[in-house]
């Protein structure tokens, strides 16, 4: 994995001078510069309302920035000027279709791309097995627990083998134990596969545990305050979670987050 962390890694996403102003006049993001390298696990960490989800959605192509640009240097652009992003997106809620089985939910991205059920079957089953739900292919979302639904959502994001996985506070609604399990499983999935993950969270501990790099964001308007490189080696596990190293990174990150929150609206 050392080569994944290489600073000279090729740039995948280049966010420059991005601002987002909503129709209501709220300035959600301002002056965002960020470059995402291939293979890194980058967390966007910040308090609620700092625009981290907005930034993730802009990168996904859901909505356009009011100023600045989001460039995909290594993607091909189609005739309408849209880059071929090759992304998988995981929302805060599992966002599954309640009328469809686990198989059909995971099959959806391929179906929308015009693939038939038969030619997709292997890929769909593979994705479902990767997230550990091999026995639940024919189940409906209603029959699954919150953590299992989130796994289905991740399988759906993985089924097209995207280069980039965008995750918008995916585990925020889950209990602590499920969350740790999913963190570990996510790292295992990510390890050595050359994907890039962009992960939105408001948890310092989660971001340190998972990331190669953390972008600490502040609010009003949303901006990136610090970029912290978490140099601890992978694989990370329970031992890392209890190590002095982990504590030290958490301390640095917390301090930065506190500073970011105190930042512009520090009225004593």
């Amino acid at each position: 994995m050392a080569e994944q962390l290489d600073a000279a890694a090729r740039q995948l996403i280049e966010v420059s001078g991005v601002a987002k102003r909503y129709a209501g006049g709220t300035l959600a993001l301002d002056g965002i510069n960020l470059s995402v390298a291939e293979g890194e696990f980058l967390s966007l960490l910040g308090p609620s309302g700092c625009g981290k989800s907005t930034l993730l959605r802009l990168i996904a192509g859901l909505g356009a920035p009011s100023a600045g640009s989001i460039d995909w240097p290594r993607a091909t652009y189609d005739a309408s000027g849209q880059p071929d992003r090759s992304i998988g997106f995981v929302f805060q809620e599992p966002t599954l279709m309640p009328w469809a089985t686990v198989f059909d939910n995971v099959f959806l991205p391929l179906k929308l791309a015009g693939k038939t059920r038969r030619e997709s079957e292997a890929a769909v089953i593979d994705a479902i097995e990767k997230v550990g739900l091999g026995g639940f292919v024919r189940s409906y979302p209603r029959q699954l627990s919150g953590g299992m639904r989130m796994r289905v959502s991740i399988a759906r994001a993985l089924v097209k083998r995207p280069k980039v996985l965008l995750m918008d506070e995916p585990f925020a609604a889950l209990d602590e134990i499920t969350r740790m399990r999913l963190n570990d499983d996510l790292l295992e999935l990510w390890a050595g596969r050359g994907w890039t993950v962009l992960f939105v969270t408001h948890s310092v501990y989660e971001s340190v545990y998972l990331s190669t790099r953390i972008a600490v964001m502040g609010a009003r308007p949303g901006h990136i305050r610090d970029l912290i490189r978490v140099t601890a080696p992978y694989p990370r596990n329970e031992a890392f979670r209890t190590s002095p190293d982990y504590n030290e990174f958490c301390r640095i990150t917390s301090a930065s987050l506190r500073a970011a929150m105190a930042g512009k609206d520090s009225t004593p």
């Binding site: 192509g61 929302f91 966002t95 279709m97 469809a100 929308l112 791309a113």
Partner: peptide, 25 residues
């Protein structure tokens, strides 16, 4: 569901696909 609508947009669903696989169900 708004997120499902976004998801369909992300995967480049056509108007017909959105109607058939999302809105009608």
């Amino acid at each position: 569901d708004h997120n499902l609508r976004d998801l369909f947009q992300l995967y480049g669903a056509t108007r017909w696909q959105r109607l058939r696989y999302l809105q009608l169900p």
